[in-house]
């Protein structure tokens, strides 16, 4: 193990690393959590997964901080984590979410929120991911295509179909007219 107290530059480097992680965390934890929440519909689960993704980033922060876009790394880890956990736990989630504590101070979701989450949940997973990444994570179509490993045209198709479905379910004006 390296005795580091003798390296005068080390404390500054560590302070900088700590500060940059804190800044990344402060700027993106909430946004990432909301994306996961919109996809999975469980805010506590989304918070747990986002926190775990940031923990994993912190554990290898020297490497991650050198990436061009550390947020993209954290987001990818969070989604991978969420999807794998989701697969394992999807049958238990409904029960677990009812058993969670610590949300007492938060008012229940509004009817509109419930409707949006329900409509999102009804979308096929690729379409749901595309909507979340496009409209809640502000990723571009090419970025989503690269992330999903599909052509841009496929992403556009997912978004188009998702828009039509969401509009039909959520927009009274579209109830009989389809997507605009």
């Amino acid at each position: 193990m390296t005795a580091t107290g003798t390296r005068p530059e080390a404390p500054t480097a560590v302070q900088t690393e700590a500060a940059s992680f804190d800044e990344l965390y402060a700027a993106h934890y909430g946004v990432l959590t909301v994306q996961l929440y919109a996809y999975f519909g469980d805010r506590q689960e989304a918070q747990d997964i986002a926190q775990e993704a940031f923990c994993r980033a912190l554990a290898r922060w020297r490497t991650v901080s050198r990436y061009d876009d550390p947020v993209a790394w954290v987001r990818r880890v969070a989604w991978n984590l969420a999807l794998s956990r989701w697969r394992r736990a999807r049958t238990a989630l409904a029960f677990l979410s009812r058993q969670r504590r610590g949300d007492e101070q938060v008012a229940g979701p509004s009817p509109e929120r419930v409707a949006v989450l329900a409509a999102l949940a009804a979308l096929p997973p690729p379409q749901r991911r595309a909507v979340v990444l496009r409209y809640l994570a502000d990723l571009t179509v090419p970025e989503i295509a690269a992330r999903e490993g599909v052509p841009e045209g496929t992403v556009k198709s997912w978004l188009h179909r998702a828009k039509a479905t969401l509009a039909a379910q959520l927009d009274p004006a579209d109830a009989d007219g389809g997507a605009r």
Binding site: T33, V34, R43, V116, V131, R180
Partner: peptide, 20 residues
């Protein structure tokens, strides 16, 4: 996307961010 759906997604983001 319809303006209404746009607004619902924007509201979801804003409100949920406040609750996180």
């Amino acid at each position: 996307m319809s303006e209404h759906v746009d607004k619902l997604l924007t509201d979801l983001r804003t409100e949920a961010l406040g609750e996180v």
